[in-house]
Nucleic acid binder design. Structure first.
Length: 450
DNA sequence: CTGGGGAAGGGGCCC
DNA sequence: CGGGCCCCTTCCCCA
């Protein structure tokens, strides 16, 4: 069972559920009854009763959905970053009332959640950073307003002529001698993302994009933009204080060995966290990237192959430990099948690319942006699918009527109209529905015990 | 007018 | 990369 409690905050604040990943959750060809009557005022429980679930008794839910505080302001996350006037940019973040002066920069990264282990806090008080830090953004809504986005035709961002434009690709970031690339706007061809990335997306990528998609720009804009500070000293491009959002239910295994896996996180791909360590040698940070940096000062100059090697080593060590924890029953082959672990949820994948894609789910990084609108996606396929909205392409036609659909799954859903297939039955009234979501809505409206 | 249900559209994510 | 399933939202129809 894959459990990730607070993912909803990252995916739009709607989902927070525990889901059984096994094959017995339900079957299309089997009538499914759902009992949602056990919900409480703070938690909705949806029980899909498969054969196994029924056999196991009422306590064995195949699917549990938790709701309750979804609509509330994200309790898992609060932060403030305060900048002084010397930065040249007005303070855009919530002022820390405990800070007696604004003459210095304060980085306060606080992750608050109900789980003590997931609380992350990093604060840095330094005067020396005051002049070297530069905010990338002013806290305005970069995504929703094309003009403020500075987008060119078709919504594409202009060439990164501004030195303030963050370019998160490896070449620029990782090479201290490559500042020209940033200033001239000549992108490394290897960076396929940069040409499509909305500047706002980039700076926000690691954290609150998803919130912003849901129209929460105003809430986060002030604090978010402060996180992606670009520190440029001479020719050294430094991305300062970029944090990966760690929503409430960061696994308790978020510890040292997991941090080492961060070497391969896409944060590594996008960021070179090379802040002025000299000036703040005792700086303590607790974001994955920070920890990584602290643990592996060489990392910033490592190439992909190097990082892969280290990554493999770490993974192997993790796998070994895990295998030992499992009593040594796991074979080497089985371990290697999914030996690339997500740094956030420890989920295993068969190759690093899949880990990277998966981790976008946690980080909110969405490198694929639509050139027709301002939607961004974590996966290329999602962008391709989305673009049919603009093109109007509907390659899937219903054989029973004239309707056409842009997606095959929608066609299959539509076909239920003709077949009358309604595999989802309510346990309370035996009413049947063609879709699970219909059933859920039905039970919420008619059988809720609220 | 209101509420429930059906249909459809679209995004998120995994395989 | 496509398929598939999940979810939510919106619109429409009807009692």
């Amino acid at each position: 069972m894959f459990v990730f409690g607070c993912e909803g905050h990252l995916t739009g604040g709607h989902r927070s559920f525990v889901k059984q990943a096994g094959p017995n959750t339900w079957r299309d060809d089997q009538p499914i009854t759902v009992d949602e009557g056990s919900e409480t005022s703070t938690q909705h429980v949806i029980v899909i009763e498969s054969e196994d679930a029924e056999a196991a008794g009422p306590g064995e839910s195949s699917l549990v959905k938790q709701e309750g505080s979804e609509g509330e302001e994200d309790p898992c996350h609060s932060r403030d970053i305060q900048t002084g006037a010397a930065s040249g940019v007005p303070p855009v973040a919530t002022e820390d009332p405990t800070s007696p002066t604004q003459s210095r920069i304060r980085h306060s990264i606080t992750e608050v959640s109900g789980m003590p282990n997931s609380a992350l806090k990093s604060e840095t008080d330094t005067k020396t950073l005051t002049e070297s830090h530069r905010l990338l953004h002013t806290g305005t809504d970069h995504r929703s307003d094309p003009e403020r986005l500075g987008l060119g035709p078709l919504g594409c961002p202009p060439a990164p002529s501004s030195e303030n434009l963050p370019v998160f690709h490896q070449k620029t970031v990782h090479s201290s001698k490559d500042g020209d690339a940033l200033e001239t706007g000549v992108d490394d061809p290897s960076c396929s993302y940069s040409t499509e990335m909305d500047p706002g997306n980039i700076s926000l990528g690691l954290e609150t994009q998803t919130h912003l998609y849901r129209g929460e720009w105003n809430r986060y804009s002030s604090s978010v933009y402060s996180e992606g500070c670009l520190d440029k000293k001479g020719e050294v491009i430094v991305i300062d204080e970029v944090t990966v959002k760690m929503e409430g239910d960061i696994p308790l295994t978020w510890n040292a060995d997991i941090h080492l896996v961060d070497r391969h996180s896409q944060g590594r791909d996008f960021l070179d966290y090379r802040e002025s360590l000299e000036t703040i040698p005792n700086k303590v940070t607790h974001s994955p990237l920070h920890t990584l940096r602290d643990r592996d000062p060489v990392s910033t100059s490592m190439g992909p192959s190097d990082s892969h090697s280290l990554f493999d080593q770490v993974l192997n060590s993790n796998d070994s430990a895990r295998a030992q924890a499992q009593g040594g029953g796991a074979t080497l082959d089985s371990i290697k099948e999914k030996r690339f672990l997500c740094m956030f949820c420890n989920k295993g994948f068969s190759c690093p690319q899949k880990v990277e894609i998966h981790q976008r789910f946690h980080t909110g990084v969405k490198p694929f942006s639509c050139n027709q609108c301002h939607m961004c996606f974590a996966q290329a396929g999602d962008l391709k699918r989305h673009q049919r909205v603009h093109t109007g392409e509907k390659p899937y036609s219903c054989p029973h009527c004239e309707k056409r659909f842009s997606r095959l799954d929608k066609l299959k859903m539509h076909l239920k109209v003709h077949t009358g297939e309604k595999p989802f039955a309510c346990t309370h009234c035996r009413k049947r529905f063609s879709e699970r979501s219909y059933l859920r809505i039905h039970q919420q409206k008619n059988h809720s015990t609220l």
